[in-house]
Design a protein around this nucleic acid. Structure first.
Lengths: 255, 255
DNA sequence: AAATAAATCTGGTGTAAACCAGTTTTATTA
DNA sequence: TAATAAAACTGGTTTACACCAGATTTATTT
């Protein structure tokens, strides 16, 4: 189990630090991490392939993969299936106490937001959804599924439910922009209260598919229930975020 | 790649669902997940050993481990090193907009909180820390390291920095309870503003060691900067949480 | 009965090899 | 030149071992 060190030319990934004894994969991890943090590798830059890293580091492929998974869990790298590993860009900062939507806070951080409408349809409320909206189970609801991008990278998929009594004909409007604005401009609905929950989760099946990530990647589930001034539930939103794309920031005044 | 199904006696983990074709480890995952969610396995119950699951499911040990890692990432199970895999208990709900501390909100959820003081000492402020407190680099700071439990399970480690000008002699008080109360009762300091950041991270080295989890487990880093009514920074806190122990909930009134 | 030593069980890490299914590139064809 | 087919490459998944070190249990000794 001797660890070969930097031979000669081809790549930076040849040298392994001596740290993390007994855990070869952590050495490989550290080597890659160092090169990312030093700035050798820019955001969205592509890493050498697993087999290249393998010969470079002298480790078995499984060991190299363990190191890559580690870095992925830390949010330093991400992957495109069967294409390669890439350096994660800086996360978006999100302040749930502000009422601005995705489009505005991404733009404010000099990043390029984009929204893609995956589906828009009418559904029957499940008992849980009905309870949230104060409706009977089976009552109609608008359901939107959208995928949102930052700088061409898909960072979240969301499912939004809207009470059709408050926003009749919602599905006929442009739903690839700010929903908040549509509700305000066309239905004169202003959100007065937001109840937000955040919880680490795993991106599975549908979500993983929509974000084109491996099923099981860690993510963050953000759930939002919006009410208007009269206490009527306007919107129920479930956002599945890539875990490396988001940073939550709250500024609270107490007393 | 035929999947053997339930043979006869010993354990529930014998039966594999037919779902997730081509990805045996997802089948194993589903099988275990189903038994957890059905309530067959209570919180903190111990799973069969990897080698038992292996013979039970007919998969190789590596495959069984892939399934376990998956469940761990989802927060359904956790492990004690070289001891076994266990079912994760329900997460604690945390509302950053409330000023109550750990002790109170854990108790309010009928769970048993406990705080353990790991170290308390005086340190010299790094440039970053100095900038936060509005001090010169090298100025003295109180540093506390604590580990906090819910129902005997360590869920977070934190490092707290306090400005000694506002709380001289802080280290002589009981620091295993609510710090907020110590500051209020002994120094008449009331927090008027909290700036909180949350970000998925990996628990490594010190943190992993203190929480007795495998280095690299996903976690949530919660950073809090507390100010008093005069805008003086009272407390700077970094909390490393197990990712499966926390659920953030915020209720915001806008307008 | 309590302290100690040994055997056993558990997860942790690593290797080597194989095959699959998408992606990407290259060479070929229209 | 543009569309198409083939080859090369990439990660995805699984198998089957092997050895280690900490945790736990069992047997032994005091």
């Amino acid at each position: 189990m001797t660890v070969k060190k930097s031979l000669d030319r081809p790549g930076w990934w040849m040298d392994l630090p001596d740290s993390a004894e007994g855990r070869h994969y952590l050495g490989v991890r550290d080597s890659i991490a160092a090169h990312i943090q030093s700035g050798d590798l820019a955001a969205n830059a592509c890493l050498p392939s697993e087999r290249q890293l393998q010969t470079g580091t002298g480790a078995a492929r499984g060991t190299v993969r363990a190191a890559l998974f580690q870095l992925e869990a830390e949010g330093l790298i991400y992957r495109k299936e069967r294409s390669g590993w890439y350096v994660s860009p800086a996360p978006i900062v999100y302040d749930p106490t502000r009422w601005e939507g995705f489009m505005s806070y991404v733009t404010a951080q000099n990043r390029a937001p984009r929204t893609e409408l995956l589906s828009a349809r009418e559904v029957s409320a499940t008992p849980e959804q009905a309870a949230i909206f104060g409706l009977k189970a089976g009552a109609p609801l608008h359901e939107l599924r959208r995928r949102r991008y930052v700088d061409h990278r898909a960072v979240l998929v969301e499912t939004i439910f809207v009470d059709p009594r408050l926003a009749p004909g919602l599905l006929d409007h442009d739903l690839e922009g700010s929903l908040t604005q549509v509700l305000r401009n066309h239905y004169m609905i202003d959100v007065a209260r937001n109840r937000i929950e955040m919880q680490p989760c795993a991106l599975t099946l549908e979500e993983a598919l929509a974000l084109r990530v491996k099923s099981g990647l860690p993510g963050l589930l953000v759930t939002r229930i919006s009410e208007d001034a009269q206490g009527r539930v306007v919107e129920y939103d479930q956002e599945y975020w890539r875990h490396d794309a988001l940073k939550v920031s709250v500024d609270i005044r107490v007393g």
